[in-house]
Design a protein around this nucleic acid. Structure first.
Length: 751
DNA sequence: CGCAGCACCTTTTTT
DNA sequence: AGGTGCTGCG
């Protein structure tokens, strides 16, 4: 087979990597060095040289988007069907394995996936059922605890509470939560991975089957894998599978959600004959942008080491804009975008990146006022909307009567006269008999133990679900029988009608209700789309023979449905969301200490390095033009902050940076002057007495002011927040470090 | 049952 | 500040 078409478009290193013959490969692929390209060409090369049939390949990514892109690019290259190749996300592939082997996993055939919101509700319910004080043990923390343990591959029995009350309580919650999920046939995201791992670990025959089948395993974004993901891959690889891991330690930005960068370090120790390759040639950015990004990341100590280079020209300098406040920062940015468009630039070639999602609002307001179309990435997605989840909950009950999470969600949605009293009765019956809410309801009805009014309502509800089920291609008595000729979208449509959901929102005349009706109608077309040409349908239903409705529900949970882009818009997103993307013009905003790097990461070296990598990721998104900006004052959750410029700015060689002023100079000069004079006033009068009013109190403690504290000693004011009696200052003490002090209590003295 | 008012929280987010 | 979720009341 002629494979020159696969190797020819590559540079020398890429070619070497793609045609590597060593057992295992670790590819450290810098930003913009052709990471996806290498993966795609590697797979194409393996298949075209006849080393492995598509069937023998397992390729894993983190996001559906990346998986889709990889799949379609391979398909485009090979011009043949990849039906038998496993390409998908960790969660998607784990799910596929569990569906195929549900009998071996102690799960019901119709098991369903809990998304984070479902999980959070479930945890709250469990805590309450246990009679635990949820103010002492907040559901959010318990949820975090559970997920963290699962990410590490730990079940309650593996965890030692070290005689710590808190850990012990968390363990109990974890335990009960697991039992509740098991009873309801429910699986959260982390559970998908953990179960898939346990399935292979405990079933020799299955493990051998998959080990024999997948002779080549390829992992994208290796630096983002967590413990259980890496363990799963190692298990399938066994002694014979060949691993091809692609990642970039400098772009590891998900440590906070369990990603183990150590996996990269461990890999060569876990497997013999790992060849390490470095892709350092960047095809994306100008030399100036790269030099700046390299300079920033060089400040990190824990690195495998890599230096990106380009043959591209220097290009424009890095622009830095110092704004008076966040309003002016946005104003400047919008003005520059306006010019860009005026000069013929495309709107969607521009991205505004920020550290926290709350920062988007000011930019949105300004863009809106200027009539520039924009799109905010992230946020609530289609399948996460309340009304959609209500509709899905009905369908979940149809598939699986014991799904308590779904039961709770819709038993009184739309309202059908089942109040807290009745629900509590059902819950307590379920609790005492250790059965599902559905079974508890049946039992209570059978014994006529509900209030007369509730009796009818509950009976109607149960009958409704049964009616829907008998309408539906799947039902409890004949689980695997698919009714011919009834499309799924009709089933969904009927569910919306019969459940009364649609009517409920149609009669509601609030402004939101209209959008909800539209969304529900959109759901029907989403289902139709799913049946017609979604890859997930082809694989799960047509190939694996999974029930269509169950497959659709999983699809909805696993792929929450990115909002559609409408036309060409300026992109607004967090730095995290920007990973993997590139734009000709980037605005990197809010470069202030405390915001970026974020306050909560400032205290510890490891977290600080992750912030720096985030900065590196942001900068390397830019192809031609990179704007940096910070605001001297910023309004954040209700109070004013004055912070120093981010240390990351100092880490960029000054010669690469050009400070810019707004073209709309009159206004900004006015703002700047005003601010400067205010600062001067503050310094001159720093000995004012506090009884001169709140305004004076603020000006008495300007950032930079040296102070003396009776017990902490000398320090310098970093910033302040709040007003009047709530006003607090952050002081960096030379002896005891940084502390927040409430001014009205602390006996601070200006020196 | 629905609504109004109040406490609470607030980094990053995919699956 | 602003949004969310819970409580208590009508």
């Amino acid at each position: 087979m002629d494979v020159t078409y696969i190797l020819d478009p590559l540079n020398e290193t890429q070619r070497e990597v793609v045609s590597a013959s060593s057992d295992h490969a670790l590819v450290l692929a810098g930003a913009g060095s052709g990471k996806t390209r290498v993966l795609v060409h590697r797979i194409a090369w393996l298949v075209e040289t006849g080393q492995v049939p598509p069937h023998g390949i397992l390729a894993v990514t983190f996001t559906n988007k990346a998986a889709m892109e990889m799949r379609s690019r391979i398909e485009g290259m090979l011009n043949r069907s990849l039906g038998a190749m496993w390409v998908g996300t960790f969660h998607g592939l784990a799910h596929r394995m569990l569906r195929l082997h549900w009998k071996d996993t102690d799960l019901p055939e119709g098991f369903q996936i809990l998304d984070s919101e479902d999980q959070s509700r479930m945890v709250r319910r469990v805590i309450r059922t246990m009679g635990v004080d949820d103010s002492k043990y907040p559901p959010k923390q318990a949820q975090w605890f559970i997920n963290t343990q699962k990410d590490e591959g730990l079940r309650p029995k593996h965890i030692d509470d070290h005689n710590d009350t808190w850990t012990d309580q968390m363990l109990r919650i974890y335990q009960s939560y697991e039992e509740a999920c098991q009873r309801g046939g429910l699986v959260d995201f982390a559970e998908l991975l953990l179960r898939a791992h346990e399935l292979l670990r405990d079933r020799d025959d299955l493990l051998r089957h998959y080990q024999r089948r997948f002779s080549h395993l390829l992992v994208d974004e290796f630096q983002d894998t967590n413990t259980i993901q890496y363990a799963w891959i190692r298990l399938i690889a066994g002694d014979t599978g060949r691993l091809f891991m692609v990642g970039d330690d400098d772009q590891s930005i998900y440590g906070w959600r369990g990603a183990r960068i150590e996996n990269i370090h461990r890999f060569p120790r876990d497997f013999p004959e790992v060849h390490t390759y470095r892709l350092e040639r960047n095809y994306r950015s100008t030399a100036n942008i790269l030099a700046a990004a390299n300079a920033v990341i060089a400040n990190n100590r824990s690195r495998l080491g890599k230096n990106l280079w380009t043959s591209d020209e220097n290009g424009e300098p890095i622009y830095l804009y110092v704004a008076f406040n966040e309003q002016e920062e946005a104003e400047f940015m919008v003005e520059r975008i306006r010019q860009w468009i005026e000069d013929g630039g495309h709107r969607d070639h521009v991205a505004v990146l920020y550290r926290t999602s709350a920062q988007s609002r000011v930019f949105e307001e300004r863009l809106l006022a200027s009539g520039i179309p924009y799109r905010v990435h992230g946020g609530l997605r289609f399948y996460e909307r309340a009304e959609i989840k209500d509709a899905l909950a009905y369908l979940r009950l149809v598939v699986n009567r014991y799904d308590d999470a779904a039961f709770e969600r819709v038993i009184n949605q739309p309202p059908r006269g089942i109040g807290m009293r009745t629900l509590e009765t059902i819950r307590s019956e379920a609790r005492s008999q250790v059965i599902s809410l559905w079974s508890a309801s049946e039992a209570l009805l059978g014994r006529s133990e509900l209030l007369p009014r509730a009796t009818g309502a509950v009976a109607n509800f149960l009958r409704l679900i049964q009616d829907l089920a008998s309408d539906t291609p799947i039902n409890d008595d004949q689980p695997s029988q698919t009714a011919p000729g009834k499309p799924l979208y009709e089933v969904v449509d009927r569910t919306l009608q019969k459940s009364g959901l649609l009517r409920h929102y149609k009669t509601d005349k609030s402004d939101r209700a209209e959008a909800r009706v539209e969304n529900l109608e959109e759901l029907v077309s989403a289902v139709r789309q799913f049946e017609r040409n979604e890859v997930a349908y082809q694989i799960n239903v047509e190939q694996d023979g999974i029930d269509p409705l169950a497959a659709f529900l999983s699809h909805a949970a696993l792929e929450a449905g990115e909002a559609r882009t409408q036309g060409k818009s300026v992109h607004l997103m967090t730095l995290h969301a920007a990973k993997g993307l590139e734009f000709p013009m980037i605005f990197l905003c809010g470069l202030e200490e405390g915001l970026f790097p974020h306050q909560r990461s400032a205290s510890n070296q490891k977290q600080l390095e992750e912030e720096r990598r985030l900065c590196y990721v942001g900068m390397t998104r830019a192809k031609r033009i990179l704007y940096l900006s910070y605001a001297e004052s910023r309004r954040l959750h209700g109070s004013e902050y004055y912070q120093r410029p981010s240390r990351f700015i100092d880490e960029i060689p000054a010669k690469l940076i050009q400070e810019v002023r707004a073209r709309n100079s009159e206004k900004s000069r006015f703002g700047g002057t005003k601010f400067a004079s205010k600062k001067k006033t503050a310094k001159t009068h720093s000995t004012w007495k506090t009884n001169q009013g709140m305004k004076d109190m603020e000006t008495q403690w300007p950032p930079g002011q040296s102070v003396l504290h009776p017990s902490f000693g000398e320090g310098v004011i970093l910033c302040y927040e709040g007003h009047g009696p709530h006003m607090r200052v952050q002081v960096s003490f030379s002896k005891v470090g940084t502390k927040w002090l409430v001014l009205s209590y602390a006996k601070l003295q200006a020196i």
